[in-house]
Amino acid sequence: MTLVFTVVTALLCLACAFTVARLLLGPDTVDRIAALDVLVIIIVAAAAVYVAIYRDGSNIPLLAAVALLGFVGSATAIRLTARRKGLR
């Protein structure tokens, strides 16, 4: 099982690196907002791996709250960006 956790952690680190690259190189504000949303999801997934490794379920409500906060934040930011561009 340790091999699975190691592989998952390595893949999360790789995904995080690609997401940070998109965050820094994104040509548009919407790309950067989407990259931040993906980064929040990666952080939640990494915390879920931590919960799975140590079998400590006390952090699960925190994971749900952070995921919800990330979703609401990115949806609000996209809506604000669309209003500033005059799309809606």
Rank of each mutant, 00 (worst) to 15 (best):
residue 1 M to V: 07
residue 1 M to P: 02
residue 1 M to F: 07
residue 2 T to A: 00
residue 2 T to F: 04
residue 2 T to P: 00
residue 5 F to R: 00
residue 6 T to S: 07
residue 6 T to W: 03
residue 6 T to M: 02
residue 6 T to G: 00
residue 7 V to N: 02
residue 7 V to E: 08
residue 8 V to K: 02
residue 9 T to G: 12
residue 9 T to N: 11
residue 10 A to H: 04
residue 10 A to F: 10
residue 11 L to C: 10
residue 11 L to Q: 09
residue 12 L to W: 02
residue 13 C to M: 10
residue 14 L to C: 03
residue 14 L to M: 04
residue 15 A to M: 13
residue 15 A to Q: 12
residue 15 A to S: 14
residue 15 A to C: 13
residue 16 C to N: 03
residue 16 C to P: 00
residue 17 A to F: 15
residue 17 A to M: 12
residue 17 A to I: 14
residue 17 A to H: 02
residue 17 A to C: 10
residue 18 F to G: 05
residue 18 F to T: 03
residue 18 F to W: 03
residue 18 F to L: 08
residue 18 F to M: 04
residue 18 F to I: 02
residue 19 T to R: 00
residue 19 T to E: 04
residue 20 V to F: 07
residue 20 V to A: 06
residue 20 V to G: 01
residue 21 A to V: 10
residue 22 R to P: 02
residue 23 L to K: 03
residue 23 L to M: 06
residue 23 L to G: 03
residue 24 L to E: 01
residue 24 L to G: 01
residue 24 L to A: 08
residue 25 L to V: 01
residue 25 L to W: 05
residue 25 L to T: 08
residue 25 L to I: 01
residue 26 G to S: 02
residue 27 P to F: 08
residue 27 P to Q: 12
residue 27 P to R: 13
residue 28 D to V: 04
residue 28 D to L: 08
residue 28 D to N: 09
residue 28 D to A: 10
residue 29 T to W: 05
residue 30 V to A: 04
residue 31 D to L: 02
residue 31 D to C: 09
residue 33 I to A: 10
residue 33 I to L: 13
residue 33 I to K: 07
residue 33 I to S: 06
residue 34 A to D: 04
residue 35 A to G: 08
residue 36 L to K: 02
residue 38 V to Q: 08
residue 38 V to L: 14
residue 39 L to T: 09
residue 39 L to N: 02
residue 39 L to A: 14
residue 39 L to K: 01
residue 40 V to A: 14
residue 40 V to D: 14
residue 41 I to G: 13
residue 41 I to D: 11
residue 41 I to K: 06
residue 43 I to P: 00
residue 44 V to P: 05
residue 44 V to G: 07
residue 45 A to E: 09
residue 45 A to M: 15
residue 45 A to F: 14
residue 46 A to N: 11
residue 46 A to W: 15
residue 47 A to F: 14
residue 48 A to L: 15
residue 48 A to S: 15
residue 48 A to Y: 14
residue 49 V to Q: 08
residue 49 V to A: 06
residue 49 V to E: 09
residue 49 V to W: 03
residue 50 Y to N: 08
residue 50 Y to G: 11
residue 52 A to R: 07
residue 53 I to N: 05
residue 54 Y to K: 12
residue 54 Y to S: 12
residue 55 R to C: 01
residue 55 R to D: 15
residue 55 R to I: 07
residue 56 D to F: 11
residue 59 N to Y: 15
residue 59 N to T: 11
residue 60 I to Y: 13
residue 61 P to A: 08
residue 61 P to M: 06
residue 62 L to E: 11
residue 62 L to I: 09
residue 63 L to A: 10
residue 65 A to T: 09
residue 65 A to L: 13
residue 66 V to Q: 05
residue 66 V to K: 02
residue 66 V to T: 11
residue 68 L to P: 04
residue 69 L to M: 13
residue 69 L to Y: 10
residue 69 L to C: 12
residue 70 G to M: 10
residue 70 G to D: 12
residue 72 V to A: 15
residue 72 V to K: 01
residue 73 G to K: 08
residue 75 A to T: 14
residue 77 A to H: 07
residue 77 A to F: 14
residue 78 I to V: 15
residue 78 I to G: 06
residue 79 R to A: 05
residue 80 L to R: 09
residue 82 A to Q: 10
residue 82 A to P: 00
residue 82 A to V: 08
residue 83 R to D: 09
residue 84 R to K: 09
residue 84 R to I: 04
residue 84 R to Q: 10
residue 85 K to S: 06
residue 85 K to A: 09
residue 86 G to Q: 04
residue 86 G to S: 05
residue 86 G to I: 06
residue 87 L to Q: 04
residue 88 R to G: 12
